[in-house]
Simulated assay, not measured.
Amino acid sequence: MKQYIQLANEEIKRSFKIYVIAVLVMAAIELVSVVVKVKLHERRIEDYLKSNTATLYEAFNDIGKITFVDAASLFSYITMIGMVLVLIYTLQIWYRDWIGETKYIYRLLMLPGNRASIFFSKLTTVFLIIMSFLGIQWCLIQFGNQLFNWLVREDYKDISNLRSIGSTLGELFSLNLTNLFIILAVALFIVSFMFLLVLIERSYRKWSGFIRVGVEIFIIVICSVSSIYFLEQTKLLLNSEKAYVLTGLFVLYFAYVIWRSLRLLKWKIAV
């Protein structure tokens, strides 16, 4: 346990600066986008009034009022970019240990004790990054909403639309604990599966490793598609029972991913 905590702390330190920079850049883009969208809407209204000598009511009928959904349109794209960066980091957190003159991975592999601490320290780091990113995004949405309400005059707001954020992003950042648990569980599984692919590639010779990675991806795709198709076609189970079966299969495969990753790290990856 002590070795795991030390390794996790080391991984977090190695990733902290670039993570903070990425979050600050994305946060700045999101908040600035809210201000820009609000100002552009006001400018369109003002230009319309000047060029058409129309009333404010006519301008709203033609151009429309603004909602936070309109002002926060970039939030969804930034969230997607953040997810892609996390996936890239999931690969980079392993491969950076093999890159460079120091070959940091050899120092890790020669440490006394169970190599499982190496795997779980990296998994913990990525998982904490995912959790913190989701939390920061949720806070930015709340702050962005307050900024929007402060910038926009009441008569410019579309009060008929009470949504504070788009449907997709709203589901993602709702306070529903069930949704949050599902998102984190799926994210943890994806990260673990990518860890497995990296360890497979690193455990065998170049072409053999890539072939085995392809086979592993093919197996999970076939198993997933066939399981979903079978459950959709069968009339023997209720919808709730189908959900339990899918959850059980998910847990079993997740356990397999962890078991095989630890086995490869212990027996196949050599110094």
Rank of each mutant, 00 (worst) to 15 (best):
81 I>F: 15
40 L>R: 11
79 T>K: 09
245 V>G: 01
123 L>I: 14
26 M>Q: 04
57 Y>C: 01
71 A>T: 01
247 T>D: 05
240 S>C: 00
71 A>C: 04
124 T>L: 14
256 Y>K: 07
251 V>T: 11
62 D>P: 00
179 N>G: 11
84 V>A: 14
248 G>Q: 06
146 Q>H: 12
243 A>T: 09
143 F>T: 09
115 R>N: 08
191 V>D: 00
151 L>P: 03
171 E>N: 15
168 T>M: 08
138 W>A: 13
106 Y>W: 05
160 S>N: 08
106 Y>T: 02
5 I>S: 14
160 S>W: 14
41 H>R: 05
258 I>E: 01
22 A>Q: 09
161 N>F: 11
86 V>R: 04
175 L>D: 15
247 T>E: 06
118 I>Y: 02
97 D>L: 02
186 V>C: 08
48 Y>C: 07
262 L>N: 02
56 L>T: 05
191 V>Y: 04
179 N>W: 10
15 S>K: 00
106 Y>A: 04
262 L>E: 01
5 I>E: 05
185 A>F: 09
89 Y>N: 07
264 L>H: 03
59 A>G: 12
151 L>T: 01
231 L>Y: 06
32 V>S: 04
221 V>R: 06
89 Y>H: 14
134 L>P: 04
78 I>S: 11
16 F>H: 12
246 L>A: 13
195 F>A: 15
151 L>M: 11
146 Q>N: 12
202 R>V: 01
38 V>Q: 03
5 I>A: 07
235 K>F: 15
210 F>A: 06
64 G>I: 07
185 A>I: 10
242 K>Q: 12
86 V>S: 05
91 L>I: 03
128 L>T: 00
225 V>Q: 09
237 L>W: 11
106 Y>D: 06
142 Q>K: 13
191 V>I: 15
201 E>Q: 15
171 E>M: 08
171 E>C: 09
72 A>P: 01
258 I>Y: 04
198 V>Y: 02
86 V>T: 09
100 G>M: 00
50 K>E: 13
268 K>R: 15
81 I>K: 04
267 W>N: 13
237 L>K: 07
264 L>D: 03
31 L>D: 03
218 F>G: 12
251 V>K: 02
88 I>H: 00
160 S>A: 10
32 V>K: 05
150 W>M: 10
11 E>K: 08
149 N>S: 10
13 K>R: 14
182 I>L: 10
161 N>M: 01
236 L>Y: 15
235 K>R: 10
130 I>K: 05
222 I>M: 07
44 R>W: 14
262 L>Q: 06
71 A>E: 04
228 I>W: 12
139 C>L: 15
40 L>H: 14
54 A>H: 15
70 D>S: 14
154 E>T: 09
176 N>V: 11
199 L>P: 00
44 R>T: 13
77 Y>A: 09
96 R>N: 00
109 L>P: 01
245 V>D: 02
119 F>Q: 00
193 F>R: 02
180 L>K: 13
137 Q>K: 03
216 E>L: 13
264 L>P: 01
107 R>S: 08
115 R>D: 02
49 L>I: 13
263 R>G: 05
179 N>S: 13
83 M>R: 07
